[in-house]
């Protein structure tokens, strides 16, 4: 379905891999470099999304909007009237109601495409390799394949585990049956995803703000989901997730929008 994105991505990954020398660690670096390039290319969308989210936050804290929501809650206006007045407020404040979700929708296929490109390029089974070969447009593909999947302590084609303490863990926890590897990358994915979600979610002091409540729930669910994917699937994806999260955080920091106090704040202060 997304082949028009995935196949060019596979070739760009392979090109970077080849440029780096196609040796040990190079596919890991290729993933990191390509992730940074993708994030840089998506920067205008990311910025637009953040600006729009900030505007929506302002709307949620606007006295007129809080009054409007109160009226609706008390049944003084119906849904149609609420929508009309909300649109009028959007117009007055210069807010595009789709400004936040449209960049997300545009980024989604690219992020999913990257996920699949990493999986496809690693080709860990005969059928995957057969499907990969015709899609490669590099002249010397035969010398590049299969990719060297070693990166630091990882095999990028396998779920990542660090076995440095495996003996101690196995002795302490014999029911693990010798599988005492620590999923370091999955843990890093959870932490960086949580940081990213918390840092990039605008605060809201409006207790009726449904989108803020949804964002708080997503800030918990998304890191868990990403962590589970990283624990289960190949380490190449986890490298991509960690790099992507870190680059997003750096971009957010360069925009001067990192607020570390959000990490510790459990609940937004209520409006006075």
């Amino acid at each position: 379905m997304l082949d028009f994105i995935i196949n060019p991505f596979v070739n760009i990954l392979l090109y970077i891999y080849q440029f780096l020398g196609a040796g040990v660690n190079d596919f890991g670096w290729a993933i990191l470099i390509f992730t940074i390039l993708i994030r840089l290319a998506l920067y205008p969308l990311t910025k637009s999304q953040m600006d729009s989210a900030k505007s929506m936050q302002k709307l949620n804290e606007h006295p007129d909007y809080i009054k409007l929501q109160k009226k609706k809650k008390e049944g003084k206006i119906d849904q149609e009237k609420f929508a009309q007045e909300q649109m009028e407020l959007y117009r007055q404040l210069g807010i595009n109601p789709f400004g936040s979700c449209l960049p997300t929708l545009l980024q989604f296929p690219i992020i999913i495409g990257m996920y699949w490109a990493v999986t496809k390029a690693l080709a860990t089974s005969p059928l995957q390799l057969i499907e990969l070969i015709p899609e490669i447009s590099l002249q010397n593909a035969a010398t590049l394949l299969p990719l060297n999947s070693h990166f630091l302590w990882m095999d990028l084609s396998q779920p990542e585990r660090w076995y440095g303490l495996a003996d101690i863990i196995t002795k302490a926890l014999p029911f693990l049956n010798g599988n005492g590897g620590i999923p370091i990358l999955a843990i890093l994915v959870v932490i960086t995803s949580y940081f990213q979600s918390k840092m990039m979610t605008p605060t809201s002091s409006n207790p009726n703000d449904q989108s803020a409540a949804m964002s708080r729930m997503m800030a918990l669910y998304v890191p868990v989901l990403m962590g589970w994917i990283s624990y289960t699937y190949s380490a190449g994806l986890a490298v991509y997730f960690v790099a992507s999260n870190l680059v997003s955080l750096m971009q957010y920091g360069l925009m001067g929008k990192l607020d570390f106090s959000k990490l510790l704040r459990r609940k937004e202060p209520a409006a006075k």
């Binding site: 449904q210 409540a213 949804m214 997503m218 669910y221 989901l225």
Partner: peptide, 12 residues
């Protein structure tokens, strides 16, 4: 909300 989140994760 629960339904929306469930649908989101199923789709993802």
């Amino acid at each position: 909300k629960l339904l929306a989140i469930t649908i989101f994760f199923l789709a993802l």
